[in-house]
Write a protein that binds this DNA or RNA. Sequence first.
DNA 1: GTCCCATGTGTACAGTCGTACACATGGGAT
DNA 2: ATCCCATGTGTACGACTGTACACATGGGAC
Lengths: 190, 190
Amino acid sequence: MTARRYDPGRRQRIIDAAIRVVGARGIAGLSHRSVAAEADVPLGSTTYHFRTLDDLMVAALRQTNEGFAELLAARGTLEDTRADLAAELAGLMGEWLAGDRTGVELEYELYLAALRRPALRPVAAEWIDSLVEPLTRRTDPVTARALVALLDGICLQMLLTGTSYDEEYAREVLGRILRCGGATGDGPAG
Amino acid sequence: MTARRYDPGRRQRIIDAAIRVVGARGIAGLSHRSVAAEADVPLGSTTYHFRTLDDLMVAALRQTNEGFAELLAARGTLEDTRADLAAELAGLMGEWLAGDRTGVELEYELYLAALRRPALRPVAAEWIDSLVEPLTRRTDPVTARALVALLDGICLQMLLTGTSYDEEYAREVLGRILRCGGATGDGPAG
DNA sequence: GTCCCATGTGTACAGTCGTACACATGGGAT
DNA sequence: ATCCCATGTGTACGACTGTACACATGGGAC
């Protein structure tokens, strides 16, 4: 009965399970019970570690955000001030989308759930900032924000229309935002 | 008992009620019962007219799309080939957002529900096309698609971060996409 | 060694859901 | 006048949900 009486990392396993559940069945399929089953823990355990589903979603979204941030850091993208920023961004998106597409869907599904769940808003804002912030080291804040908005829009259109990613198109339109930026051009504003 | 025995337009009233429900409680609050209560019809009536909730959402999203298309047509925006397209688009968004903000949230919530509901995909695509199509009369298809992507991204960032709409910012970055367009510039491609 | 409490476990309850079904009704075709 | 069937109505069922609670257990503070 007391099969797993001390279980460090159980909280983490529950988060991982929640991410798998959302990936497989969407947010609509997320419940304390579905996560408990996926994580192979009793129902009471999920409600203990995450009193509400919002808490669980916050943890899941934050972890997904960190995963993307690591991809960003690992590639060292956006650091080389001499590279073509538009091409870098377009390539980064291509790499992200080339992998498990469910990861992208998951990111956006949790991201967009923030529309109706105030608890998720700050985490969604973190997601935006995690992209905007490194970009502000390469261009001015207005341009950085616009680049992220355009990236979001491109990804969404892709996911919604079912079309495949067109990296050349992304590079082109991202480049327009950059090329037509004010006098600052490509360098940092300060 | 038979208070309302012939009720033309009941189907329409159910759709209107569904839109109000989503606006007030979000998609998570949408159920046959909640819509039935809002429309003041018995449960069986909603299930009769819309066998599944997806059917109901399709109808609601399509109607919302049409509402925006009417706003577009009524203003005659995008028709005057001499006006500044970026300013026009930014102004149009401003007008849309200035009104009942729940309308915008509703549009995006239903729009984004398509991520997980294939039945909604075609209607989401219609939404994109309803914006892209008139734009292709003023610029080339690639630019038109990018403009819509950027608009979506700007709206989303607004809704998610809770910031207010910055029309000047929108005009500026939309303008960059247009100004840096290929040789075609502002005129139609063909 | 003793005790506390964070953690783990199992069960129960009241509410909501989609769905199905039997039955009522009356407009319009015949 | 008669009948059919699209439409309207009411109820029931099983599944699932969030939440709450009582109880078990054992690591670590003391």
